[in-house]
């Protein structure tokens, strides 16, 4: 039996005395896009930070290809093949666009292949080619998000982690960025673990999804199935159910509670 690309088993992470994620498990297989949905404070970012070693878990295991990677330094985890595109983009503000991209390839020594991949990134995000000599600080939010994704891609990772790529972007830009995320998955065979609040767009690009709430997983399944579920519709897509007398059924509880 082959092990999944990434597996988290019963992971618990604390901020001091506060348990931020409570025994979470998830699986990402080779070639998949998997979404983790959740509201603010559900623990999505904590989950990704635990996966890449920016936070240590107190319990549980994180496995990449069956090998344990939990509680190691994040640069070590990155060298094992996970590229983390953090929330809020976090580009290097005073390096140029092309220097930012090259920093993504820091641990690669095949110069020609890196140069080819920089061109690949420009092909996906043509605006970055125009801005390549510019300091990243002067880019717009959407351009910085593209740069952050391109920088992650340049590591040629086994798995790309995307933390809320839609954050603070216009709906049109969100559509564009997710179209490219889908293409990176299909054309480059890039496996992606995506964390989002924007359930609609995230479930449309992904094959499977998990729903997180107050630090725990409450639902999981095929993305189509989740998109169709009443709870997701109501709480993440904002589609209200009309009750008798045309009023919202305010007493409705989430079924997983």
């Amino acid at each position: 039996m082959t092990s999944p690309l990434l597996e988290m088993r019963n992971v618990e992470t604390y901020y001091g005395p506060i348990m931020a994620i409570r025994g979470v498990s998830l699986v990402v297989d080779e070639g998949e896009i998997v979404t983790v949905l959740g509201a603010n404070g559900a623990g999505k970012t904590t989950l990704l930070k635990t996966a890449t070693g920016a936070l240590d878990s107190r319990k549980g295991r994180v496995l990449l290809d069956g090998a344990e990677i939990q509680n190691r330094d994040p640069d070590w985890v990155a060298r094992q093949g996970i590229a983390h595109v953090p929330e809020g983009r976090e580009v290097f503000p005073f390096l140029s666009v092309v220097e930012n991209l090259e920093m993504g390839a820091y641990n690669r020594h095949d110069r020609d292949a890196v140069a080819t991949d920089v061109e690949t990134v420009y092909a996906y995000f043509p605006v970055l080619r125009e801005l390549r000599g510019k300091m990243a600080a002067y880019l717009s939010g959407g351009q910085q998000q593209m740069l952050a994704i391109g920088r992650g891609f340049l590591a040629r990772p086994r798995l790309l982690l995307l933390d809320e790529p839609s954050l603070g972007l216009s709906p049109a830009l969100v559509e564009e960025i997710f179209r490219i995320i889908t293409r990176l998955n299909r054309e480059q065979g890039l496996s992606i673990l995506l964390v989002e609040q924007n359930a609609n767009v995230a479930l449309r690009v992904s094959q499977r999804g998990y729903v997180m709430e107050v630090g725990g997983m409450v639902m999981d399944g095929d993305s189509n199935h989740l998109l169709a579920s009443e709870d997701i519709k109501e709480f993440y897509l904002g589609k209200k159910e009309e009750g008798i007398r045309g009023r919202r059924r305010w007493k409705k509880r989430k079924t997983w509670r």
Partner: peptide, 23 residues
């Protein structure tokens, strides 16, 4: 490469870690 990576680490240490830079 070393020098630019040092700049990167000083500008955003966590992002440098995420890129696999041995900060």
């Amino acid at each position: 490469r070393y020098g630019i990576a040092m700049q990167a680490a000083s500008q955003n240490q966590l992002a440098a870690y995420y890129m696999g830079i041995p900060v």
